[in-house]
Every structure is written in C-alpha cells, then in structure tokens.
Amino acid sequence: MFEIVERRELAENIYLTRVKAPRIARSAKPGQFVIVRADEKGERTPLTIADYDVAEETITLVTQALGISTRKIVAKGEGEYLADVAGPLGRPSDFVAEDIEELRKRKFIFVGGGVGAAPVYPQVKWLTERGVEVDVIVGAKSKDLLIYAEEMAKVATNLYIATDDGSEGFHGLVTTLLEKLVNEGKQYDCCVAIGPMIMMKFVTLTAKKFDLPCIVSLNALMVDGTGMCGACRVTIAGKTKFTCVDGPEFNAYDVDFDEAMRRQGMYRTQEQRALAIQREREAGHKCNIGLDK
C-alpha cells in the first residue's frame, strides 16, 4: 500500500498525486515510469513519473482521468492509499548517462502537450540543474487545461506556451510554435516531445523538416510493465520493440506512429463499455436486463 501525501486538481480532470514510495524515489531517473493499481480490482496502469524527491521519499504522478482506472486513481485523496506502485520502470532518458560537458554544448527544446507537460518537467529540471540550456514549449487546448506552466517557468531557460484557442500564449499548435521558433533563428540540437501520440507524430514531422534530432516517450498499453506480456509492442526502425523495457523513449524518426496509435485502441470498445456502465451505476441506474454483467 502506498500512501498519498498530496493530491490536488491541476486542471479540469487532471490531478497531481504525490505518493510515499521510498525505494522508487531513491532509484527514479528522468524518463522512467511506474505501474499503478488503484485498488484490488484495478488495472495496472502505466504513468510517467512527474517528479521524485529522495528526502521526502515521494514520487509525483499526474493523471488525466479518462477511463475507469485513471478515474479510480484520481479519486483517491490525501491520506488514502494506492494499492500498488511498481517501478521505476523503463530505461532512463539517454542524456542521463551522457557526459555533462558534452551535454552543456547542446541546446534542447522540449515539447510537452496536454498532460505530457508533467513528464517533461523532471527531465528539464535534471538538465538545467546541471547547467544545460533547455527551452520548453508547453501546449494545451486552452488556458484552463494548461498544467505545469509555473513549475516549468522556474526550471526552463525559456518557456513558451501555446494554446489551441489562443487563451494564453501563442495562438496555435505546438508544432506551429516550434516551427516559428526555429524560423526566427533559434538553434536546437535535440528535441524531446511528450504528449498524445498524434502530437508526437506531428512534432516529429516538424523536427524532420529542420533535421532536428527528436526523441519521443511512447505511452503504449501495458499489463505488467516488466517485459512479460508484450502488449506494448511498437515497431522501431522496422523491428518490434517492447515499450516497457526497450523504451519508453525512442528515436522519433524510427517510430511507426500509425501502428502505435492503432494498437492503443486495442481495448477501446471494452473500456468505453465499462466506463459507460460505471457512469450509469454512479448515477444510480440499476440495469434490469443485465447489460451491466
């Protein structure tokens, strides 16, 4: 059991949950994720680590409540417990193992879309704490859905905000903003994009235009998260890889995004059905013809 020490709503349906997990806090590195199970009946859900604090022995998770499992996770309040948190899983970001002097010669641009802004944060923090220059684009549909802008402003060299409706910062998509920055003469050596699969696909296409190397963090479906099941198979440069143990970060140019997006939908019908039943139950509806069985 893992105690929740802090929980707050960051934006509509997006929650921050900070959990006591001493072993994970000690071992976590930027780029890694955990598997969370809210309760005894819950699914094993992969969530990227948004922050970790060795002294406090906590890790921070940012969850967008979409399906049954994520709704269960965000419903847990301070002082309550998550049944399971296992990790840190996956390989840390490549830069963690690189020579610091070499890293300082490079300039990074991070693109965090929607809830993807959260996992970008520990990476930016890690790099700028070590004196590496990092620009960050945080994107959201609108101002109300924008998360991590304040925290990011503290750690990023330059922070750029983009909203689809123009309610804050640049009016438009993160890809358009990225293109604008490069066209205005910004020089970057590496782009890291984390967010919805479709956003990562288009950031990759944009980066390609400028021959800008690009890394993405894939959020494939998983069960165990340790290499056992292969649900998270993705095609990387024509070869099958497991997101959980070979990733979650990959060279973006090599990723078959269309296949990855299709595979994310493997259980969509079942998930939507389960969620619909759950909503009906919550509304007090009792099915008399057994459709909820």
Binding site: V223, D224, M228, C229, G230, A231, R233, V234, T235, T240, E259, R262, R263, G265, M266
Partner: peptide, 13 residues
Amino acid sequence: NLNGVLSANEFLT
C-alpha cells in the same frame, strides 16, 4: 503487430 495478436503471457496474465 496487428490488433488482436498477443502473447500467451499477455492473454493469460
């Protein structure tokens, strides 16, 4: 890697 192909490990887990 089509949707609907899985390892026995995944199916049984």
